[in-house]
Amino acid sequence: MGASKTTGRSLQHEAWIALRKNKVAMVSGFLIIFVCAVALLAPWISPYPFDEQYLDQVLAGPSERHWFGTDSLGRDMLSRLIYGARISMAVGVITAFVSLIIGTAYGALAGWFGGWTDSALMRIIDILDSIPSIILLILVKLVFEAADIIGNPELKALTSMLLALSLVSWVSLARVVRGQVLQVKQMSYVEAARSMGASQLRMVAQHILPNILGPVIVLLTFQIPSNILAESFLSFLGLGLQPPYSSWGVLANDGWRSMSSYPHLMITPGVAIFVAMLAFNLLGDGLRDAFDPQMRGRA
């Protein structure tokens, strides 16, 4: 390690340099970009519409016409997989983003003000943490769907899924942000800003938040795959999205029923989830090592 010669290299820049050297993480990063591109471009690159039935091709195995075969209603698996990527990735990314906003605001509030505010806010988190997340997910979905705000059933299922996952996943982020803020608050540069007469908002926005970015980015990278998995869990249990909507969890649930005779229906979405999860987890590992100077050169 030692002191670097160049001055003014930010923590983020240092981390980026460390990350670029990590081949596994870089490959995972490109894989994620690829999956995101596929998801975004779904209407243009998928060979068939995701809900179009080809009744002469029901439950066909992989062929030239249908690379990954067709399902029990004769729908093209590749197209369903591509559209599934769209929903699964959207669920992962959007919920991570929402939980980033809620979690950062909440955690920063608790950590910055401390004292009475902190204990009250943390007590709420303790309670939320005591309910198993899958039950919290189910409850939020149940309440939202019974409240009947959105008429369209498909849109309702998707919105309630996004809402439930966002409401559940901000908690761990808030914990981390709070811990980090408590640490950074003690730093002399914050003290310096305070003595220069900086406003509270300015101190938090300019000095605290940029310095806790590392752990937050790392946690977000781990949160995206766990949200994707949670979505597929719920859809697999029949409590999430429903066909003809296509997400990887819906496909897995579909495929599971005919596993022994038509394994391709199960394996295709399963492998897609596995690869995406692996890529996110490996990238998250790489990011953690990159942001943590102590870990450099150890593993």
């Binding site: 998995l229 597929s232 897995a252 394994p263």
Partner: peptide, 18 residues
């Protein structure tokens, strides 16, 4: 371990059953 963490159980279960 990394693969185990990334495998959804509804993918492992059918394989084990098979």
């Amino acid at each position: 371990a990394m693969s185990g963490q990334s495998l959804p159980s509804f993918l492992i279960a059918p394989i084990f059953i098979m």
